[in-house]
Amino acid sequence: MSHAFRLSFTVNGEPAEVLVDSSKTLLEVLREDLNLTGTKHGCELGECGACAILVNGEPVLSCLALAVEATDSHVTTIEGIGQGGQLHPLQDAFADLGGAQCGYCTPGIILTAKALLDRTPDASADQIKEALSGNLCRCTGYLQIIESVQKAAEEMRLRPDLQVRGTET
């Protein structure tokens, strides 16, 4: 009943082509076909946010995205946000300020925060909380996550070169 189709899209700025089954989600394709295991999963039902990635710059849940519908899109995963051999400021801030404890919700949160800061470089604490309200974290209590995003935002404002890449639409 299912059929395989050739999915061609852009992943982290590079073209990718995979033969996948129509019932596969983007989560499965990223992890199992492209070996991009930085994208995590905590429920596969859209209830936790761990699998969040950016599709055309917007945060979506890869567990509820049909791979077939990603054709021609630009997908960004946690593996693809560093640049020039450097970590993204969000990654630095999360590592430095306790934004990542177990690290399992971290990729989804960093990508979601990136989409926010790309759009709203001076996001307030309330805006950060609201933007991250679809990413559950069981470790931190969110406060150090929010501080990490604020710190990264500051860093990014000082380094406008970092804002160029990312919204690969």
């Binding site: 295991t37 930085g38 994208t39 995590k40 970590l87 990654q91 590592a95 990542a100 690290g103 971290t106």
Partner: peptide
């Protein structure tokens, strides 16, 4: 300080059990 495993966690390089393929 940055935790010793901080970089691995923010880059998605930490291998959790299900990440072992």
């Amino acid at each position: 300080r940055r935790r010793t495993d901080g970089r691995a966690k923010v880059t998605g390089q930490t291998k959790f059990a299900d990440d072992i393929m």
